[in-house]
Amino acid sequence: MSLPFNSNLAEQVKAIPGGEMLMMCFSCGTCTSKCMVQEKLEPNYNPRRLIREAVFNFEETAFADETTWLCTACDLCYPACPQKIHISGVITAVKQLAVAQGHQNPYQTAKVDEATCVACGLCESVCPYTAIKLVEKKVPFRGMITVASVDPGKCMACGMCTAACRSTSIRLNQDFTDNEVLENLWGWLEREAV
């Protein structure tokens, strides 16, 4: 693998607010060992490596890296970083660049059922990532109405919107549904009741 000289990813990241400190990283690995995503979700997740990829302009690798897409900006690493690099800022910058180049978030995001959404705005107010907005659009059988809309570039699949929704119109499209949870719960309750 040779260095990609035709990319200026590092410069682009540095130009985005949050990414300025990119070059200060001395690769101590504190962020990786602090990270919950790495611990709980994806062992291959590694902010230190992503920073490295950005520094050396490995654009394709960086945009394909799970680190780019799975960071939820919980900022556990930021107060731990000895170089005071706002790591989630750097990752968000890489993600912004990836989205701008047409890359899709490969992970699940919340999805709105437009047939039942009443545009009450509860989901918009609870979303920690301002990923949900009320927009006016044409919905089959309902005409031009206002419904909630999820920006897949911002959504982190926390499910807070699902818990808040009063009309069960917004949900995560995989893994975790109310019915599954309830069935599981009742399975235990009924077994225990016997």
Binding site: C28, G29, T30, S33, K34
Partner: peptide, 21 residues
């Protein structure tokens, strides 16, 4: 560089989680 040391409250054993670069 370790990010965190955790301790077992009973045995006072220490656990260091760090990235092995």
């Amino acid at each position: 560089r370790p990010a965190e040391i955790t301790e077992d409250p009973d045995s006072h054993q220490l656990f260091i989680k760090s990235e092995d670069i």
